[in-house]
Design a protein around this nucleic acid. Structure first.
Length: 482
RNA sequence: CGGGAUGUAGCGCAGCCUGGCUAGCGUACCUGCAUGGGGUGCAGGUGGUCGGAGGUUCGAAUCCUCUCAUCCCGACCA
């Protein structure tokens, strides 16, 4: 057991922070609520970006960049939007040594500037759809920051699209929700439930919001990605109009969708253990560490290290990435080196020592030391690839099994209260619900914080509402959330 | 922003109540020797204007006021 990490059973928040520190993912910045993303953490983000970016491009989107500063008046054009975001906006009022004529808001999200630009770019039905994504930073002055989950400044991607018809925009909203679900499941090993948000949880300015919800290992829910159907709200606020085939002027229909560095928090809280970080191989910056071991320095530099380099090149070629690194901390004791990689979430360790070398074999060991096997040099690339795929799959299966173990169907309000009272966080409660936003708030108050995370898209069943008793209610996932 | 707590070496802490020699301890770090396949052992050493500002006092880590930051519990959110 790692002595620099508080066990999660003892104090989950402390455990989370300890894992981040031990894995050198991020540090607190000198600015309130901001974080410094360290190389090991940024490497995860780069891998996430790579797989998501590819998926966006495969579905016809292109990248662009819009400015960090937004004229204050833009924010005020959409009533719901300004109401939702005003409390958490940081504003620039001085620049160049004097007071600005109009304050600039540091973007909390870019619907407004992008809407403004779209209004200039769109004239005809032929100009639609516009399918643009941007990777950038945004700032939201949150009350209670937590590394990766909620920081004042965070990195994300925001897609903004404009369409000629309502149907097309709705289809886009659902398409991107599904892209998120797939990417999270396949690459981050996060089983997520995707579905529609309740009115209380809607994005300010959206007609409808959908999300991907994941269960953390303490039973709480985390919203890992959202896709919004904005209707014509922003088109009307920013005058995004086009002339249709009949020559008639129409408002466009828009969508927006985003995922952020919060996904790194989701990965940590879904997979990691009391020894430290556990990373899904597909997004691990280091997928395997080759560790040459010998007490004979000449042997290390003359034969083991060069062989390790050769092996890492072969492995990288086989994996199609640069995820295999040679550990050159030769002066450290083997135990220290193993521990270092363990805490940083490196899925596989390849031990290359005198014992193996003499026999032209390497030892492949899993992070948790659960399996150790010897393979020949020639067989190593294929075997490593196989093992990484296996680990990736097992992580997903394990997370899914955990979610299922902590999900329960509840058919009455008392049962729901009981579910969330018994444990500290409960888990996911599945229940039919057809009440009003105030009814939902009442459930929140009486359960110690459980809210509707989403109404699963794939669940078309109908039943009796736990609150009102009305028949024909949709099924909802209730949970306490981060 | 409300309730609670904490700021002393990179990290974790003691000292504060009851003011007083040169501010300690563990760990990390550096050096040496021995070691070496899941957090090595011994010995020696480097490193602190005690979060910041002001006040009380002959004298402040310690008492008082203000301030900043962090953590926990709420409200808010990707």
């Amino acid at each position: 057991m790692a002595k620099n990490i508080t066990p999660k059973e003892k104090n989950y928040s402390q455990w989370y922070q300890d894992v981040i520190r031990a894995a050198e993912l991020a540090d607190n910045a000198p600015v309130r609520g901001c974080m410094v993303v360290r190389p090991n953490g940024y490497g995860i983000w780069e891998n996430i970006q790579a797989v998501f970016d590819r998926a966006f491009k495969e579905t016809g989107h292109v990248n662009a960049y819009f400015p960090l500063l937004i004229p204050n008046s833009f924010m005020e054009k959409e009533a719901q939007h300004v109401e939702g975001f005003a409390p958490e906006c940081a504003v620039v009022t001085r620049a160049g040594g004097s007071e600005l004529e109009e304050p600039y808001v540091i973007r909390p999200t870019s619907e407004t500037v992008i809407g403004y630009m779209y209004s200039q770019w769109v004239q005809s039905w032929r100009d639609l759809p516009i399918l643009i994504n941007q990777w950038c930073n945004v700032m939201r002055w949150e009350k209670r920051p937590r590394l990766f989950l909620r920081t004042s400044e965070f990195l994300w991607q925001e897609g903004h699209t404009a369409h000629a018809t309502r149907e097309e925009a709705l289809a886009e909203t659902m398409l991107m929700l599904d892209v998120y679900r797939r990417m999270m499941q396949e690459n981050l090993a996060l089983p997520v439930i995707h579905g529609e948000k309740s009115m209380n949880e809607r994005f300010p300015g959206a007609d409808n919001t959908f999300s991907c919800e994941a269960m953390m290992s303490d039973g709480k829910a985390l919203q890992a990605g959202t896709s919004h159907f904005l209707g014509q709200n922003f088109a009307k606020a920013f005058d995004i109009t086009y002339q249709d085939k009949n020559g008639k002027i129409e408002y466009a229909w828009t969508t927006s969708w985003g995922t952020s560095t919060r996904m790194i928090g989701a990965i940590i809280m879904t997979h990691s253990d009391n020894d430290g970080l556990v990373l899904p191989p597909r997004v691990a910056p280091v997928k395997a560490a080759i560790i040459p071991i010998s007490s004979d320095e000449a042997k290390l530099s003359d034969s083991l290290a060069p062989t390790a380099m050769k092996l890492s090149n072969e492995l990288n070629a086989a994996l199609g990435c640069l995820g295999v690194a040679v550990d050159r901390q030769f002066h450290m004791r083997p135990g220290d080196r193993f521990f270092h990689h363990l805490q940083r979430g490196v899925p596989l360790r390849i031990e290359l020592g005198e014992r193996e070398f003499d026999e032209s074999r390497v030892t492949i060991v899993r992070r948790d030391n659960s399996k150790k096997e010897q393979v020949s040099f020639d067989a190593a690339p294929a075997r490593v690839k196989e093992l990484l795929d296996d680990i990736q799959k097992n992580m997903y299966d394990k997370a899914l099994a955990f979610r299922e173990q902590n999900t329960r169907d509840v058919s009455s309000l008392d049962e729901m209260k009981d579910f969330f009272r018994k444990n500290t966080n409960g888990g996911f409660a599945r229940a039919y619900f057809d009440g009003s936003p105030d009814d939902e708030k009442d459930i929140k108050d009486s359960t110690g914080g459980a809210t509707i995370r989403c109404m699963p898209t794939e669940d078309e069943s109908r039943g009796k509402c736990v609150y009102t008793g009305k028949e024909g209610a949709r099924r909802c996932i209730f949970a306490k959330a981060y």
